[in-house]
Simulated scan of single mutants.
Amino acid sequence: MILDGWFWAGTVIGVLSFLTCVVMTAVRRHPADSSILSVAAVELFLLVYAGAAAFRQLGGQPLNGPGWEFWGYVLTALIVPVVAVGWAASDKTRWSNLVLAVVGPTIVVMLHRMQVIWFGQW
């Protein structure tokens, strides 16, 4: 399996989002703008990733796993940050920052699975 630049970029963004949200959970009593912006950065990365994946696949680079599974992961990953921000907008407590914190690690795990599907197993 190959962990390419897309994976590492997504990991850095996901970890930074996680750390930002955890710190804001300790500091703020309501959803912090920095937490929401960090999750928005994760969503922006995922949109670029999806576009690049479509471009790569249409350009002839094959998936080593099922296409439905890869694109299912992509679509699900795109929904996770939106749901978390929706939760934060409706729940004005400190814990909404913690809900936002879960987005980063979740996306990193999903990116790893997408890499496995794209490039194959070890």
Rank of each mutant, 00 (worst) to 15 (best):
Y73E: 08
L63Y: 12
T76Q: 06
M110T: 05
H112S: 05
W95Q: 07
V99L: 04
E43F: 11
P31W: 06
V103P: 13
V42M: 02
F45H: 03
Y73N: 06
M24D: 15
V99D: 00
V109W: 10
V48Q: 06
P62C: 02
A89M: 10
L37I: 11
A52Q: 15
A26R: 08
V83L: 11
V82H: 04
T25F: 13
T25Q: 06
I2H: 05
L63Q: 13
F70V: 02
A52T: 14
A50M: 15
H30D: 09
V102M: 13
N64K: 15
L100W: 03
L47E: 10
V48W: 10
W118Q: 08
S34F: 09
S90L: 15
T11K: 00
L16E: 03
P31V: 09
A53E: 12
W68Q: 07
W8C: 04
W68A: 07
A101W: 05
A52D: 14
Q57E: 15
V99C: 06
V23D: 09
G72Y: 11
D4I: 08
V15Q: 07
V15G: 04
L111E: 11
Q57M: 15
G104K: 01
V116R: 03
G86Q: 05
T25R: 12
W122F: 14
A50I: 14
V103G: 13
L44C: 07
I117Q: 06
W71D: 08
H30C: 06
L100P: 04
G120C: 01
V102E: 04
A89D: 06
E43T: 07
A53I: 04
A54Q: 11
W87M: 13
E69W: 14
F55S: 09
M1K: 10
L19S: 12
V23Q: 10
R29I: 06
H112W: 12
G86A: 06
I117E: 11
G67K: 13
R56V: 01
D33W: 06
V108S: 01
A52M: 14
G120W: 03
P31A: 10
L78M: 15
D33I: 03
